[in-house]
């Protein structure tokens, strides 16, 4: 089975599950309409979800994904308290700047997850990604350092190890 059809099958099962969660499963009409509509959706737009083969075993990937999720939630709570401190302070203690960090990730979905979690963690916002050079430009609300290597360790280093295990 080629990878396109496997991706379509995944999308079919997911959309069918969401349909059953949202509608009444005892009625025959709802079930029939769900089967037809999920088939159409997976035929039209199903080939975009899974695009690359994964080499590692699913159990290990699931384990590091759970570790990543908890780390991300903790960082996010810290980020919110940090923003609350800045906003409530009378003098607005900010020192903004745009810095550059390097990344080892190459796949599209890994870079997307990394940039999304950088945006939601303390004081940083992704501005642009240069995929060929492996560089990410980041707006930092209180610039701790302007050196590229140190900024890489400070911002991206927390998540990169887990993401390599999950996606690469």
């Amino acid at each position: 089975m080629s990878i396109k059809w496997r991706s379509r099958l995944t999308v079919y099962i997911l959309s069918l599950l969401i349909w059953f969660a949202l509608t009444d499963i005892k009625k025959f009409e709802e079930v029939a309409a769900g089967i037809v509509i999920s088939f159409l959706v997976s035929l039209i737009a199903g080939h975009m979800l899974v695009t690359t083969e994964k080499s590692k075993s699913p159990i290990m990937r699931f384990k590091s994904a759970v570790i990543y999720l908890f780390k991300f939630l903790w960082e996010m709570i810290k980020a919110n308290i940090h923003v609350a401190y800045i906003v409530l302070h009378p003098n607005l203690p900010i020192k903004p700047g745009i810095v550059k960090i390097k990344t080892r990730l190459t796949k599209d979905i890994a870079i997307t997850v990394l940039t999304n979690s950088i945006t939601l963690t303390p004081g940083t916002l992704t501005i642009d990604v240069d995929k060929q050079a492996g560089e990410i430009y980041i707006h930092w609300i209180d610039t701790f350092t302007i050196d590229t290597d140190q900024a890489t360790k400070e911002i991206g280093g927390k998540f990169e190890k887990n993401l390599v295990e999950v996606f690469e």
Binding site: I94, K95, P96, I98, K100, Y137
Partner: peptide, 10 residues
């Protein structure tokens, strides 16, 4: 960017 900005690598 605002006046407090210290660096703009981009």
């Amino acid at each position: 960017l605002c006046d407090e900005t210290i660096i703009d690598r981009y």
